[in-house]
C-alpha cells in the first residue's frame, strides 16, 4: 500500500471548501492530518499523510488538489541526529508539538519516533548541541 506525506497550501478563498472530503470520497484515500493551520480568510497550511490507495490514486487525488488551486509539496525531508553526540538534555522536546521527540521517563534517554515527525524543523535550532539535521 502506498503512503505519501504532503504539505498543502490553501489560498484564502479555498480554506472553507471541503477539499479533503473529496480526497476521501472521490479518490478513496485515507488521510491522516499531521498538522493544520487554517484561519478563515487567511492562507492555510495542512500536512497530510495519504494512504489506503495505490500510487496512481494518490497521484490523481493530488492532481485534483492542484486543479483546485491548492499548493502541493511532498514532504521528502527527514530529521536525523547523531545519537552518540546527544546528551539527552531534552531541549529539542520543548518545541516538538507532535511528540516525535520525547525523553523516555524510565531511561532518561531521547527517543525519536519518526512516524510522528512532521518535519517542522523547529527542533533544529532548539538543540543546543546543534546535532539535529534535516536530510533531503
Amino acid at each position: 500500500m502506498a503512503k505519501k506525506r504532503v504539505v498543502l497550501t490553501f489560498p484564502p478563498e479555498l480554506t472553507e471548501k471541503p477539499i479533503t472530503y473529496h480526497l476521501v470520497k472521490d479518490f478513496d484515500l485515507a488521510i491522516n492530518i499531521l498538522r493544520a493551520k487554517i484561519t478563515p480568510g487567511e492562507e492555510g497550511k495542512l500536512v497530510l499523510e495519504l494512504s489506503n490507495g495505490s500510487e496512481e490514486m494518490i497521484k490523481k487525488g493530488l492532481d485534483f488538489l492542484v486543479q483546485q488551486g491548492v499548493g502541493v509539496e511532498a514532504v521528502s525531508k527527514e530529521i536525523s541526529f547523531t545519537d552518540e553526540d546527544c546528551i539527552h538534555c531534552g531541549a529539542c522536546t520543548a518545541v516538538c508539538q507532535p511528540g516525535a521527540l520525547q525523553i523516555n521517563p524510565d531511561t532518561g534517554r531521547l527517543r525519536f519516533e519518526k512516524e510522528r515527525c512532521i518535519v517542522c524543523e523547529l527542533c533544529v535550532p532548539a538543540c543546543p548541541l546543534g546535532i539535529i539535521k534535516v536530510l533531503f
Binding site: H88, C89, G90, A91, A94, I103, G108, R109, P128
Partner: peptide, 13 residues
C-alpha cells in the same frame, strides 16, 4: 502546558 527539561537527567544519573 507541556514541559521539557534543559538539563540532562540521563547524564546526571
Amino acid at each position: 502546558i507541556p514541559t521539557a527539561p534543559l538539563s540532562s537527567l540521563y547524564k546526571a544519573r
